[in-house]
Design a protein around this nucleic acid. Structure first.
Lengths: 158, 158
DNA sequence: AAAGCAATTGAATAATTATACAAATGGGAA
DNA sequence: TTCCCATTTGTATAATTATTCAATTGCTTT
């Protein structure tokens, strides 16, 4: 079951919280989390996640998650954030309630950043259905949404 | 003389204008420009220039220049741009004239982004002296300043 | 359940990038 | 100039990352 997804989530979390400069190093952290696999797989995962390697004053180069925070203009983003009302989960499906008419624009933001955690969204007028990937838990979806629309931070209860 | 600097400038220019995914590839472009040296040197140069390698939909990963456009807040930037009057060169020294009192804040922006082309700046009240690196030509300094303060584009005559 | 197919993975290895070390180069100071 | 010292560079090699290929795993269909 969800082994690959679980691993991908762990990789994202580790890169977000640590300063890591090689696959070997990341591999060790994953081992410590009980996830056991090889460098070849990790190399493929990093490529899949579009992880970048950027200059770091301390460690030369370190891994960095791509900007989920898409290059969409900020106006669209704060407009969308304004329409957000709530997020709830039923099993692992997410349902966002918005002010009337806001659902499509918020869903568009999510679709554009296209995180692997979310397979797709369906927007009506004031409701969005979020379909998470296998083995992705509500908490992961929430984490993801905050990266996409920073304004949501705080509005999303755990 | 100025061979290293010339090479660094060429590397920046090539990375800015091409989509390059390996040192070997970059090396070939430099050869085409008449610059001849080895991969080891290139590796060191890329580290020196803090060039990043980021995910690219077409070529997997490609080199990207670091944001000279520093993480300073945009307010400071547009404020500074507003005070700019002119830039002139005497030999290879640059002199920026600003409205009274603006020199320090503009100089601070330049200092913060710390491009290798500029060794340092000295700001009075309405004048900034820009001291370029060996072999760096006015055109390179101009190119550099536009990256740091985009608002200057157009205001800077070649 | 068995067959078929696509997706995932590991082991081995290829390809790429970084570095140790020695040689060369480029200024100053005497 | 000559000596010294620091910087830069190439060669060879180490370290790191990507990929090939075969094996395995997971589903779907029959």
């Amino acid at each position: 079951m969800g082994s690959r997804t679980e691993r991908l989530l762990a990789i994202k979390r580790l890169i977000a919280n640590h300063t890591i400069s090689s696959q070997e190093e990341l591999l060790a952290l994953l081992e410590a989390d009980g996830l056991h696999f090889t460098q070849a797989t990790l190399s493929r995962d990093l490529k899949f996640l579009k992880v970048n390697k950027i200059s770091d004053p301390e460690k030369g180069y370190v891994y960095e998650l791509p900007d989920q925070h898409a290059p969409v203009n900020e106006v669209a983003e704060s407009y969308a954030a304004q329409g957000f009302i709530s997020l709830q989960f039923a099993n692992n499906l997410g349902v966002i309630k918005t002010r009337p008419g806001y659902a499509p624009s918020i869903a568009a933001l999510i679709d554009q950043s296209n995180p692997f955690e979310i397979v797709g969204t369906i927007a009506g007028d004031d409701t969005i259905l979020i379909i998470p990937n296998d083995a992705v838990k509500p908490q992961d979806v929430i984490h993801c949404l905050v990266l996409i629309i920073p304004e949501l931070k705080g509005k999303l209860t755990k």
